[in-house]
């Protein structure tokens, strides 16, 4: 499972850094390294771009896993260089940005957009598998998620846009409900597709979502 990201356009990054001349860059050794959006190489490239912009780099660092609590230690080890910066530019996913913000008073600015949590289905091909909807349907949809795999998140069967097993939004994308139908049929469990699913509860966990484990 990986947090899938893409780098923001450099113009947007430049805009976010307006008035912030001294920058410390943080990359992540886990997800953004894998997606080539925030590993050692990309941090180095970003450093050069920022220098071309006339920024002063107080340091760079690629944290093994920016979202976990060891980030605290890495921050402390680099305290001086970070203190000397006006802001921290994060090339980790947004979870890393959140974690970094916990320890810092200076602004933490994301350099990447976080897209989805992906599961690697075939080498290099990542697909969103779960949107944490709070009401899991997998038991009645033969293990295929109707929330993430169906473009409209439909829970009662296919829409009228399904075409030869493909989705109306993209001829390359499978229609989730054809997949669900095929697999339920194989399992001899098509009766599950005939059941009426009432409107979903969009507030299973009230936003803002949090949970305390005792």
């Amino acid at each position: 499972m990986k947090s899938m990201t893409k780098q923001k356009p450099i113009e947007e990054i430049q805009q976010s850094l307006e008035g912030l001349d001294k920058v410390f860059i943080v990359g992540c050794g886990t997800c953004t390294t894998l997606t080539n959006t925030g590993g050692v190489e990309q941090v180095e490239e970003m450093k050069e771009k920022l220098q071309e912009m006339g920024k002063w780099l107080t340091g760079t660092l690629v944290i093994p896993t920016a979202c976990d609590d060891m980030t605290d230690v890495a921050m402390k080890e680099n305290e001086q260089a970070i203190r000397g910066a006006d802001c921290l530019l994060s090339m980790s996913c947004a979870l890393g940005v959140h974690r970094l913000s916990l320890y810092l008073d200076i602004p933490v600015i994301p350099a990447v957009d976080t897209l989805f949590i992906g599961v690697e289905e075939t080498p290099g091909y990542f697909r969103e598998a779960c949107a944490q909807c709070g009401q899991c349907f997998l038991g009645i949809t033969a293990g295929i998620c109707p929330i993430t795999a169906c473009h409209k998140g439909l829970v009662n069967g296919p829409c009228g846009g399904t075409n030869n097993g493909k989705c109306e939004v993209d001829k390359e994308k499978d229609c989730a409900w054809t997949l669900i139908y095929n697999r339920l049929k194989e399992q001899n469990r098509l009766h599950l597709m005939r059941q009426y699913q009432p409107p979903r509860n969009h507030h299973v966990t009230l936003q803002p979502k949090s949970m305390k484990i005792s």
Binding site: K152, G153, L154, N156, C159, G160, V169
Partner: peptide, 26 residues
């Protein structure tokens, strides 16, 4: 149910689909 937003002329709008056609009948 309605067509997907992205096939239309407001491609960045949010598709709601809080209900589907069947739930709307109900």
């Amino acid at each position: 149910t309605g067509d997907a937003v992205v096939v239309g002329d407001h491609k960045e709008a949010m598709g709601v689909f809080d209900l589907d056609s069947l739930q709307l009948i109900n």
